[in-house]
Design a binder for these strands. Structure first.
Lengths: 170, 170
DNA sequence: CCGAAACAGATGACGTGTCAACCATTGCTG
DNA sequence: CAGCAATGGTTGACACGTCATCTGTTTCGG
């Protein structure tokens, strides 16, 4: 995102400009690349993978929809659509909940488990290759600190609007 | 994206884990937030904004489609779809090119210019508020360096496959 | 000059993300 | 316990991204 030559109040200074552009650029390239490799190597998207990982970490590979949404930091509607697609591809199943009949469980299928177990090590390799292999230990820590700082600011920006049900304010 | 407890070769160490998760978290929150604010305040998406900024920076607010795609680092198909939607909303127009009759120009409309000029300062404010206001000068530089490093690795990873026409390998 | 390859760009299909509206069930309050 | 708000979850409409494919144009080797 070039910021144009239009003048506004409190424009970004040159170092900020540089950093911001580099960040946007890296981000676009990195997410595109990781998604493509996941698709090519394992036949699933990063979104699929995230859901499968959450489920596989749970006893019985069984979670309530809302718990899953919160764990992922996703909006419930987004998750619902995602689950529909994953169910069609045989990665998960839905089963209804007797304690609260509004609710539903999401269950990992055998195929889902096999898929995520095959995908995980390859994905780690990709992340390592594209990100961590070229960063120093200090840079890794720095990235973590910066990310956590910005994430905290964003979380704080959501205080005051408690009517949200999506994951943008956790 | 939790990386699960599945064992793979060369797993991420704890600091890398922490950094990676923080990065993913920040990223999800930040892009969601910036998109939402752009939409609420100016009625356009970040994608619209990026296109409008590129055009507004050019003499005559007039660019060839492929030049625009390269400037944005986008796949030409993605841009074509985007332009169709933007044309329907009156932000840009297409005009055909006499020098090369395969080609097409993209032209910024008056409405498009007004929109981007109103959106830009607000967007900068958002970026400043959520990102740069809470980072030290060293952190800003660090973010820039890290991003540039990773972006370079990703660009290098595309050498060797010259058959690409998208922006993932510029 | 002819024909094939390369190029500019558009299109259709499909997966993904967001918003708003919509059930059904639950639980609280009168 | 009647009624109504809150909760859990789904659905539909639409914007966005990617891939494969298509059309029309240019270019270049023979």
């Amino acid at each position: 995102m070039r910021e144009s030559t239009i003048e506004g109040p409190r424009w970004l200074d040159p170092r900020e400009q540089t950093a911001w552009r580099a960040y946007l650029d890296m981000n676009a390239k990195l997410s595109a690349r990781l998604n493509r490799e996941m698709q090519d190597q394992s036949g699933i998207s990063i979104a699929d993978f995230s859901v499968l990982v959450q489920l596989s970490e749970h006893v019985d590979a069984r979670m309530r929809v809302l718990g899953l949404a919160r764990a992922l930091g996703w909006e419930k509607s987004r998750l619902s659509h995602q689950l529909t697609r994953m169910q069609q591809r045989g990665l998960i199943e839905r089963s209804n909940c007797n304690e609260d009949r509004r609710g539903a469980f999401v269950v990992l299928t055998d195929q889902g488990r096999a898929t995520v177990e095959a995908a995980a090590p390859r994905h780690v390799e990709s992340v390592r290759r594209y990100v961590f292999d070229s960063l120093s230990a200090e840079q890794v820590d720095s990235l973590g600190t910066i990310s956590a700082t910005v994430a905290r600011v964003l979380a704080a920006a959501c205080e005051g609007r408690e009517d949200v049900d999506d994951g943008s304010c956790d």
